[in-house]
Design a protein around this nucleic acid. Structure first.
Ligand SMILES: [Mg+2]
Ligand SMILES: [Mg+2]
Length: 408
DNA sequence: TCTGGGGTCCTAGGACCC
DNA sequence: TCTGGGGTCCTAGGACCC
C-alpha cells in the first residue's frame, strides 16, 4: 500500500510514439533506425505516420507523400497495414485496462485513464505511468509517452511534451505557468483556422488568451468555443474520463487516382462503399436511418447530401439506393475526386431504455415534455407529487399512465 | 506526384410543435 | 395585436482530431 497525497494528479494521457511507423519498425528489424513513412502510395496519398528519423527531414503527418519524398527521397515508404495496427491497439488497450476500468480510448493509439481509485494500491500517477509504459514496451514492442495532470486537457498537452518514450507530470500549483508559456495551437480544439483568428488579435500564447477578458474571447469565437477555450486557458476542465463511448456513425470513402465524371462508374463505387458500411452495421448489430453521400470535386470543394429514411435499415441495398438517389441530385460536371457513403447509427428503443435505466431520463426531454403539458393545460397541470393537494384541478385522472415508453 | 480515411462536435436555418 | 419563445428534427457545412 502506498500513501498518495489527495491532490496528486490522477488523469493520465497515454499516446503511442509514431504509431504506424513504429509498428512497421517492430515488424522489420532492417528498417529500425531508418526514416520510415507510412501513407497512401497511390499518387494522392498523405503521410499517416513518420518515424522520428523521418521527422528529422521535416516529414510530418498529413503532408502529401509527394512532399515527403522530396524531403527525403531515400526514406522507406510503406502502405498502411491496418490489421496490424488494430491488433497492436487492442493489446495496448487491454494492458491499460489492467490498471483501471476507467480507460477512455480516443483513437487507435491513445487513451485517457483516471487512476484516482487505483492509486491506493498501485502508487501515484507517475508510478502507474512508468509501470504501464514498461508493460506496453515489454508486451507489445512499442513505446508510449504519458502526460499526467489534474485535467484531461493538460494531461494531453503534457504527453506531447513527454515524447518520445517519456513521461511528464504537471504538478498542481504549477499548471498555469506551464500552460501560459505555450502557443494557443497547443490547446485541444484550436486548429489552423482558430489559431489564425487569434493571431489577428495578437493572441499568440495561451497566456495571451488567458489575459484577455472572457467577453472579448466570446465575441471572437462565439459563446461555446469562446467559453470553452477561455476556461482551458486557465486549466478549468472538469470533463471526466468516460469509458465505453458508443460509436455514432460509420463511413467509407475513396479518393480516386484520377477524377471521375462517369455517373455509372460512380454509382458502382457508391454500391461498393455502401456494401462495406452495411457489413459493418450488421456486424455490430446496429442499424441506420440517416445516410450521407459525400462528394469532393476536382477543385477540392466538398459537399454532403443526406437523407433520413422512414424506418431504420441495416441492408446494404437500401443504403446504396439512398446514396445513389442522392448522387442523382449532384452536378458532377468537372469531375469527382472523392466519393463517400456514411450512415448515422440509429439508437434503438432498447438502447434508449437501457440508457434511461442507467442514467435516468435526460433532463432536456423530461422538462420539455412537462413544459409542453403546462403550456397546454396551464401552470397547475403538472406539479411535484409532494406539492399536490387533493383538488379536482390537480389530482391525476384515473387511468393516467406512469410514463410513456418511446421517447422518439 | 498538392491536399487520406476514419471519426466527433458545433452552428445555423427552416419546418414543425406546443 | 407587427412579431413569443422555446424545444426537436432535419439538412448542410465546417473545424478539429488522429
Ligand atoms: Mg501517437
Ligand atoms: Mg495520438
Amino acid at each position: 500500500m502506498t500513501t498518495v497525497s489527495k491532490d496528486s494528479p490522477s488523469i493520465l494521457h497515454v499516446d503511442l510514439d509514431a504509431f504506424f511507423a513504429s509498428v512497421e519498425q517492430r515488424e522489420n528489424p532492417e528498417i529500425r533506425g531508418l526514416p520510415v513513412v507510412v501513407g497512401g502510395l497511390g499518387g494522392r496519398g498523405v503521410v499517416a505516420a513518420a518515424s522520428y528519423e523521418a521527422r528529422k527531414f521535416g516529414i510530418r503527418s498529413a503532408m502529401s507523400m509527394a512532399q515527403a519524398k522530396q524531403a527525403c527521397p531515400t526514406a522507406i515508404f510503406l502502405a498502411p497495414r491496418f490489421d496490424l495496427y488494430s491488433e497492436a491497439s487492442h493489446a495496448v488497450m487491454e494492458i491499460l485496462g489492467e490498471f483501471t476500468p476507467l480507460v477512455e480510448p480516443l483513437s487507435m493509439d491513445e487513451a485517457f485513464l483516471d487512476v484516482s481509485g487505483a492509486r491506493r494500491t498501485l502508487g501515484d500517477g507517475l508510478e502507474i505511468g512508468q509501470l504501464l509504459r514498461a508493460r506496453i514496451t515489454a508486451a507489445v514492442g512499442l513505446t508510449a509517452s504519458v502526460g499526467i495532470a489534474t485535467s484531461k486537457s493538460l494531461a494531453k498537452i503534457a504527453s506531447e511534451d513527454a515524447k518520445p518514450d517519456g513521461i511528464l507530470v504537471i504538478e498542481p500549483g504549477h499548471e498555469i505557468e506551464y500552460l501560459h508559456a505555450l502557443g494557443v495551437e497547443r490547446l485541444w480544439g484550436v486548429g489552423p483556422v482558430t489559431r489564425e483568428q487569434l493571431t489577428k488579435l495578437g493572441i499568440i500564447t495561451i497566456g495571451d488568451l488567458a489575459s484577455r477578458s472572457l467577453d472579448e474571447t466570446i465575441s471572437v469565437l462565439g459563446p461555446s468555443q469562446g467559453n470553452h477555450l477561455y476556461r482551458l486557458a486557465w486549466n478549468q476542465d472538469d470533463r471526466e474520463v468516460v469509458p465505453n463511448n458508443s460509436q455514432k456513425s460509420i463511413s467509407h470513402e475513396e479518393t480516386f487516382s484520377v477524377d471521375i465524371s462517369d455517373r455509372k462508374l460512380l454509382e458502382g463505387k457508391v454500391r461498393r462503399l455502401s456494401d462495406r458500411v452495411g457489413e459493418r452495421l450488421r456486424s455490430q448489430e446496429a442499424a441506420t436511418r440517416t445516410i450521407t453521400l459525400k462528394i469532393r470535386s476536382h477543385d477540392f470543394r466538398t459537399i454532403t447530401r443526406s437523407r433520413t429514411l422512414d424506418q431504420t435499415t441495416d441492408r446494404s441495398f437500401e443504403i446504396a439506393q439512398a446514396a445513389q438517389r442522392l448522387l442523382k441530385t449532384v452536378d458532377i460536371g468537372g469531375g469527382v475526386r472523392l466519393i463517400g457513403v456514411g450512415a448515422q447509427i440509429a439508437v434503438s428503443d432498447q438502447g434508449i431504455q437501457e440508457s434511461l435505466a442507467f442514467d435516468g431520463p435526460p433532463r432536456g426531454h423530461l422538462e420539455v415534455t412537462l413544459d409542453a403539458v403546462r403550456d397546454r393545460f396551464g401552470p397547475g397541470a403538472v406539479v411535484s407529487a409532494r406539492d399536490a393537494v387533493d383538488s379536482p384541478d390537480q389530482a391525476p385522472k384515473k387511468g393516467t399512465k406512469g410514463g410513456s415508453k418511446k421517447t422518439r
